[in-house]
């Protein structure tokens, strides 16, 4: 562990080419007792190929923020640019989404689930099958393509969901607490697998989670959000070397980083 350098600096310089740029984003929704502010003045930039994790207390709006980046929800004001262009509606060419529950269609096999986005675009059958099989191999599920979701474990379902998110080769992958429903061991394995897939595909990833350990283990940079109305209250660079290993979790630097995030969250609460 000699090469682990203690870096706890706040991120200042942004990478030259940004995959995601969020500026002045505010969201207010109509609640029972009038307007409820959900997100306040969010600004963030994610460089191409970076792995950014958003953490924050429940109900802070981190999922809403992710859904807005996916073009699935509309913010009250502010802009979101993905690959240099605003995103108003879902655009699978630019953004793939992996949801909290794997949300696979139970009436389709694993392979058909992965092909689903391609089928929507009426891609030729041969191309669909070839592409879906590549993805199945990428996520380590070769031989499981003909299984239905109810025949797969929780971890395997999320692997299929990741394969589905990547099948159209979008430069950006958004992940909304994808491993939250998994047991601790599976969760660790999946984190490791995700980093392997990420290093092989060079995607820009925004990953939302509750788990600080997961955040430090995965991220290049962790964004900390406050309780509602959600604001970004901290940016912490995770300069642990890659590839990450399980042993790193036992190091002081790992503990310091996690503690630092925890302090930020607690200070707010």
């Amino acid at each position: 562990m000699a090469n682990v350098s203690p870096v706890l600096s706040i991120v200042r310089d942004e990478p030259a080419s940004a995959a995601i740029e969020v500026a002045g984003l505010t969201h207010v929704y109509d609640g029972r007792d009038g307007k409820v502010p959900a997100l306040t003045d969010i600004a963030m930039t994610v460089g191409a190929g970076r792995f950014v994790v958003i953490v924050g207390p429940s109900g802070c709006g981190k999922t809403s923020l992710l859904m807005m980046m996916a073009g699935l929800r509309h913010q009250t004001s502010g802009t979101i640019r993905i690959q240099g262009r605003p995103i108003d509606n879902p655009d699978p060419e630019r953004v793939g989404v992996v949801f909290q529950e794997a949300s696979l269609f139970p009436w389709l096999t694993a392979l058909d689930n992965i092909e689903f986005p391609l089928a929507l675009r009426h891609a030729p059958k041969a191309e669909r099958a070839e592409r879906a099989n590549q993805m199945l191999n990428l996520v380590g599920l070769q031989g499981f393509g003909a299984r239905y979701p109810h025949e797969l474990s929780g971890g395997m379902k999320q692997r299929v969901s990741i394969a589905r998110g990547l099948v159209q080769d979008p430069p950006v992958l958004l992940m909304d607490e994808p491993f939250a429903a998994l047991d601790e061991q599976t969760r660790m394995t999946m984190g490791h697998e995700l980093l392997r897939i990420w290093s092989q595909t060079a995607k820009t990833v925004v990953f939302v989670t509750h788990s600080l350990t997961e955040a430090v283990y995965l991220a290049d940079e962790v964004l900390v959000m406050s309780a509602r109305p959600g604001r970004i209250i901290g940016r912490i660079a995770i300069n642990l070397p890659r590839p990450r290993t399980y042993e790193m979790m036992a190091t002081d630097i790992f503990g310091c980083l996690r503690d630092r995030i925890w302090q930020q969250i607690r200070k707010e609460g």
Partner: peptide, 29 residues
């Protein structure tokens, strides 16, 4: 019909007709 299934289809750019035929119909079957 599960809302997350509809959301998945929308995230992949499904049209209203595709959501009806590829999510609603099989879910309701």
């Amino acid at each position: 019909v599960r809302t997350d299934h509809v959301l998945v289809a929308r995230s992949f750019g499904a049209t209203r007709w595709q959501i009806l035929t590829r999510v609603y119909v099989p879910s309701m079957m």
